[in-house]
């Protein structure tokens, strides 16, 4: 019945064939009208609007980073000034620091998230518990990032919850200054909110692994560790890669947590973009945005390359 499904996908209500209809301009108009009221028309129109309103600005900004600008006035000559500035002003350090932080946070999320996702997909028995965890991982997308970050100040500050409590218990004499406005506080603030980004794709990938496959591996005498290594991890790889991207990229570009919990002492990429744009150095901001975009692109490219290799050539349409 291949023929049948193919036909339906192609042309569910038989509107594509116009050979029984008038020819020439009239036929063209009839075809356009049908295209518009069919389901395809709106999608094509939306895709064009989306490209013009959303994708073009991104391309333009890359181009913009190659221009020089004073305030809102653009000078129309192409130069690598903005990029030279990044190196000369020593701001490349920011790139290194941000990438280190993003890599570390991604690694922590992966180490904690993979077993957690595995447990959730294959070991958790109670339907209610699974639903609860799934809900708990969804809700963070809908929380105000500044509000939930701000509270950490009240927890980690020198007069905050942790220091006060420890001093009351006589465990420390003076408040620990490194708790807030440090790499530690930034890491702490970033791990929680981006943990779901890691767990969800891995969970979905593991969920798709047939239980029979895992059972078969055990029946053939494989230890749980061997099953994990040779069955689960390879099959969950697309999910793991997606989790890494969904965690690394937004952490790299997060501007709220470093601003609130970094206290301006340790600058991150997004801080720099903000301060450059505040000082109206938009070409510089665009250059940094381009760098973030480029790093994202490289990661995505690696992901696609990896997936193609894993699935095999030709299998990817």
């Amino acid at each position: 019945m291949n023929v049948r499904t193919d036909v339906m996908l192609r042309d569910p209500l038989g509107q594509a064939d116009v050979s029984l209809r008038p020819a020439g301009l009239h036929r063209w108009i009839v075809a356009r009208k049908e295209w518009l009221i069919s389901e395809r028309g709106p999608v094509h129109i939306f895709a064009i609007v989306w490209a013009v309103a959303v994708l073009v600005p991104v391309i333009i900004s890359v181009f913009f980073s190659l221009l020089r600008a004073h305030g809102l006035r653009i000078q129309w000559n192409i130069s690598l000034h903005a990029y030279r500035d990044i190196i000369e002003s020593g701001r490349w350090e920011v790139v290194v620091r941000t990438l280190t932080a993003a890599a570390a946070i991604t690694a922590i999320c992966l180490i904690v998230g993979f077993p957690f996702a595995l447990w959730l997909a294959k070991r958790a028995k109670s339907e209610k518990l699974i639903q609860f965890v799934w809900m708990a991982l969804t809700v963070p997308f809908f929380l105000d990032p500044s509000a939930r970050t701000l509270v950490w100040r009240g927890v980690l500050g020198s007069t905050g919850l942790v220091n006060t409590a420890l001093m009351k218990l006589d465990l420390i004499d003076a408040p620990m200054g490194w708790l807030l406005f440090s790499d530690f506080s930034v890491y702490l603030g970033l791990i929680g909110p981006y943990f779901p980004n890691m767990v969800m794709p891995i969970y979905l990938a593991i969920l798709l692994i047939d239980n029979d496959l895992i059972q078969a591996s055990a029946d053939l005498g494989a230890t749980p560790a061997k099953t994990l290594r040779s069955i689960i991890i390879p099959l969950a790889m697309p999910g793991i890669m997606a989790g890494i991207i969904f965690t690394f990229v937004p952490v790299m570009g997060d501007s709220i947590v470093p601003s609130i919990l970094g206290g301006g002492k340790k600058e991150y990429l997004a801080d720099t973009v903000m301060s450059l744009s505040t000082s109206m150095n938009y070409a510089g901001a665009a250059a940094f945005a381009t760098i973030i975009l480029l790093l994202t692109g490289i990661l995505l490219g690696l992901f696609l390359l990896f997936r193609r290799r894993a699935v095999g050539p030709g299998a990817v349409a």
Partner: peptide, 22 residues
């Protein structure tokens, strides 16, 4: 058998598909 065109003929009678010529 499947692929013999029997379903296509039914779909053309039903109006779900427009034949190239009739």
């Amino acid at each position: 058998p499947s692929g013999s065109g029997k379903t296509t003929l039914l779909r053309i009678i039903g109006g779900f598909e427009t034949p190239v010529a009739a």
